[in-house]
Every structure is written in structure tokens, then in C-alpha cells.
Amino acid sequence: MARITPEEIKQIAALARLSLAPEEVVPLCRDLDSMLDYVGLLAEIDTRDIEPTAQIVPAASMLRVDKAGASFNTALALANAPASEGAAFLVPKVIEEEG
């Protein structure tokens, strides 16, 4: 099985927005390796032409009627916010505009 390198661990951690202490990297490599070794068991099954199951419920999505209902008031929306100002959530400066 492929061994996960510390570099890869750092990349995955960056994608998942987790920061790892230097001493966490090696044990995580080991744990992920052992997990991947274990799940590698699946490679022995021939799954050509087998449909993937994403959801067990056979039906199609239930839809809602387009009807507006009640919303939280601003105070309730912000009640749990670690930081807020006025009517808005407060975050460290957002530098670029995302699409």
C-alpha cells in the first residue's frame, strides 16, 4: 500500500483547515496508513458495472412548495456568534471576493 508522506498529511490538513503540531504529523501518518491499509481490502472485489449507492433511500428527492415562512430575528441569528457587531457576524478581514 502507498505510504502517506508527512507532506501529504500537511496538504490534507490544509484542505481540512486543521493545523497540526509538528509532533502530531508522524502519528497521524501512521494512523492514516493503518486505516488505508485496512480499507485497501476493498481492492480485491471486482466492482466493474456495479452502480454506486450514494443514498439508501430509493425515492427521488422530496421537494418543498415555494412558500416563504418565518425567519430568526437578527438577535437570535447572532445569539451564538463568537463575535458580532451591529447586525452582522464579525470575522477577520476577508481579503478577496469569491464568486
Binding site: 502517506i4 501529504e8 498529511i9 490534507i12 490538513a13 484542505l15 481540512a16 486543521l18 497521524l28 492514516l32 486505516m35 488505508l36 480499507v39 476493498l42 481492492a43 472485489i45 466492482t47 456495479i50 452502480e51 454506486p52 449507492t53 450514494a54
Partner: peptide, 25 residues
């Protein structure tokens, strides 16, 4: 970490999609 890895580019088919297929079985 494991979940992020198995969904990431290049590993999706080998791990996540494979697991969905075995789920069918």
C-alpha cells in the same frame, strides 16, 4: 483527515466510489 483524503482528487474513485459500489453489493 481520512475523509478529506478519500474525497480528494485522484483518490475518489479508488476509495470513495469503490466503497459506494461495495455498499451496493
Amino acid at each position: 483527515m481520512l475523509g478529506t483524503y478519500v474525497l480528494s482528487a485522484g483518490y475518489y474513485d479508488a476509495y470513495y466510489r469503490k466503497a459506494q459500489q461495495v455498499r451496493t453489493l
